[in-house]
Design a protein around this nucleic acid. Structure first.
Length: 293
DNA sequence: CCCCTCACCTGATCGC
DNA sequence: TGCGATCAGGTGAGGG
């Protein structure tokens, strides 16, 4: 469900509520939501209790909250349907609440966090922090071990355009596949891949190695543009699956040009948007604007 | 290393 | 009404 803009909205929403807060209690309602945690739920709960949380961070679609005075973080990946919801301390469980975390904030008082996840592809864990491979000298850039292989995202100030473009143009698989490869560039999922490809007028099945330099640069620019715009609008919400931490929906679904618009006219040329099977899901594109050559 | 397929899950919807 | 097929915003293991 959530791609970079949605996860960033969650991170930003969480920041004022959890930074400086202390974990009072944790309940694991479904242990499958701890898949990434390498130990039983009791271990997670025991280590979480008493943890003082720092400001939440993000790389691509991974979100984590460092624990102060400890070299570890509460790592969260939302998977396809995960949510983090901020609620009052006595709030009842949501339909899909899997993990409940009660914290005490020095200013805002007690708060309850729900990790809700219908499909349970997401999960939480406590994970050690290590130096980032691409910034080994910077202690502020430490990342959880499970995020170490993830590339920076295009909104990251340290994202290396030239490096990415060269790597992209060295790939033999299709451009869309490459955009979805989180070790090459992170944060992009099926929605924003389709949107960026539409905006750049590139067919997703174009071999990445066949992209001209200008086309690759244009594509990166459009990826950035669409991620930024979606972030400004609070992310894409088709249904209650994606929500801000306070339960509000984002507005970017109204701005989509290709994704989910099969048979509707391409906003640029009027040709019906096509939908094609792709990696057990779908691709949406304009067969006129996005030619495969 | 690169590339690809598949398993992991629940629930809504659609056609018969 | 029931029931199977299909679809949904992602990742990582494990093969070639």
């Amino acid at each position: 469900m959530p791609e970079l803009p949605e996860v960033e909205v969650v991170r930003a929403g969480l920041a004022p509520a959890v930074t400086g807060a202390v974990v009072v209690d944790v309940a694991v309602l479904d242990e499958r939501s701890l898949r990434r945690h390498g130990a039983p739920a009791a271990d997670f709960v025991g280590r979480m209790r008493g943890a003082r949380l720092a400001a939440p961070r993000r790389r691509g679609k991974f979100l984590w909250i460092p624990v102060q005075e400890r070299d570890e973080a509460l790592l969260t990946h939302l998977g396809m349907s995960g949510q983090v919801l901020l609620r009052a301390p006595d709030a009842p469980d949501e339909r899909h609440t899997r993990i409940r975390i009660d914290v005490e904030h020095p200013e805002h008082g007690p708060l309850r966090l729900h990790f809700a996840d219908q499909r349970i592809f997401g999960s939480m864990c406590l994970d050690p922090l290590v130096r980032a491979l691409d910034a080994p000298e910077d202690p502020d850039e430490e990342i959880p071990t499970q995020v170490a292989h993830i590339a920076r995202d295009p909104l990251d100030a340290r994202f290396d355009d030239a490096r990415f473009l060269a790597a992209l143009r060295g790939r033999r698989s299709g451009v869309k596949r490459s955009l979805l490869d989180q070790t090459l560039v992170s944060g992009i999922g099926n929605i924003y891949a389709d949107e960026a490809l539409w905006a750049a007028r590139v067919h997703g099945e174009t071999p990445a190695e066949a992209l001209s330099r200008p086309a690759a640069a244009r594509l990166l620019a459009e990826v950035r543009a669409v991620l930024r715009r979606a972030l400004e609008e609070g992310g894409t919400s088709f249904d209650a699956q994606y929500l801000h931490v306070n339960g509000e929906a984002g507005y970017f679904a109204h701005s989509l040009n290709a994704y989910g618009r099969q048979d509707l006219p391409c906003p640029r040329c009027g040709t019906p948007i096509r939908r094609a099977a792709f990696m057990n899901r779908s691709s949406h594109f304009c067969s006129r604007c996005q030619r495969l050559r």
